[in-house]
Simulated assay, not measured.
Amino acid sequence: MAPEKPTLYLLDNFHPEVIKYCEENFTAILPGTPEHANWRQDARFLLVRSSRLTAEDIQSCPKLIAIGKQGVGIEKIDAVACSKQGIEIFNTPGVNARAVAEMVLSLTMAVAREVGRINTRQTQGVLVPKETCSGLILSQKTVGIIGMGNIGKIVAQIFRGAFDAEVVAYDPFLPLDAWSDISHTRLSSIPDLLKVSDVVTIHVPLTENTRNMISLSEFQIMKRNAILINAARGGIVNESDLEIALRERLIFGAGLDCHEEEPPSKERYEKLWELGVVSTPHVGAATEQTQIETGTTAARRVLEFYQTQAQS
């Protein structure tokens, strides 16, 4: 007789391959089914992708013991409330690193060659003679990486390989021998990194310490032909100060995959877009392969937790 499957409530829509994995390994309760309405009262295991789980949500789940979270960020889940109730959170660090790193490359190239500004003008019906365009060459430039985790490391490898770039990096938490296999210079402060970087790319979580990490005072330090990329979290870059920096030409341009408002609206971001900001709606991990891998990994971690609990 086959062992009874654990019941898993899926709070969001997932790739069909992820749902297939869940249905093979769990009794999967999908959104829209009658049973799903009772997830707060009944769920022991949840799988989430983008849903927000507040402290009130957590407190209303008396049976909940584990949450699988597709992706790295857990800022939409009240981790303090989960900790108080002994609820485990299983996210998927590292699984989406390659996809996000490639997005950083895409944004950087688009900013460097003014794709955002040119595309905006053309879609408005404006003829753009090539003589009016003047982008940047990235070969042998310096890329500054804030945050030396899984994504930052792949970004370093990509820029070394594609552009023979000099790599400088800042991370106060990793040991000094981190990235021993990548030629780079470890700097001791963000200002030191900003002063020397032609491309600055951010790979840290949004915390009270990192909120508004890049504001007007930081833009004033940067090179006038520097490019800023944020594919981490909205709120790390002060968007009002970014607009000032671009208007005053303190930096060359910026690429944002993450915004304070997501998805970004024309009402809020039109001024930045007119200034040439290349903006995408947090799609760094939005490839089919990555969606399958991250969703399946989150579900598998919940299953492994269940199996460990069952054996103890």
Rank of each mutant, 00 (worst) to 15 (best):
M1G: 05
K5F: 12
L8A: 09
L8M: 10
D12H: 09
F14S: 09
P16Y: 11
V18R: 01
V18H: 08
F26N: 02
F26V: 06
T27M: 09
L30D: 03
W39R: 04
D42Y: 04
R44S: 14
F45I: 03
S50R: 11
G73N: 05
K76G: 05
A79N: 14
Q85K: 15
Q85H: 12
Q85C: 00
Q85Y: 01
I87Y: 00
F90T: 01
T92G: 06
P93I: 06
G94Q: 02
G94W: 00
V95I: 11
A97F: 04
A101H: 03
E102G: 07
S106K: 02
T108F: 02
T108S: 05
V111R: 01
E114I: 01
G116E: 00
N119G: 08
N119H: 14
T123S: 11
V126M: 06
L127D: 06
S134K: 14
G135E: 02
I137E: 14
Q140Y: 12
K141I: 12
V143W: 01
G144M: 10
I145W: 01
I146Y: 05
M148E: 03
M148R: 02
N150V: 02
G152A: 09
F163W: 08
A165L: 07
E166M: 12
E166V: 11
A169R: 03
Y170I: 08
P172K: 11
P172V: 07
F173D: 11
P175N: 05
L176I: 05
S183N: 13
H184E: 05
H184S: 11
H184V: 01
L187V: 14
D198W: 03
N209G: 10
R211D: 04
L216C: 08
A232C: 07
R233K: 15
I236W: 13
V237S: 12
S240N: 15
D241F: 08
D241Y: 08
L242T: 08
L246H: 07
R247G: 04
G253T: 02
A254R: 10
G255R: 01
L256I: 06
L256Y: 14
D257S: 05
C258Q: 13
L272A: 08
E274G: 10
L275F: 13
L275K: 12
T280G: 07
T280K: 09
G284I: 06
T290R: 10
Q291K: 14
Q291M: 15
Q291E: 15
Q291N: 13
T296I: 13
T296M: 10
A299D: 04
R301K: 15
V302D: 01
V302N: 03
Q311S: 13
S312C: 12
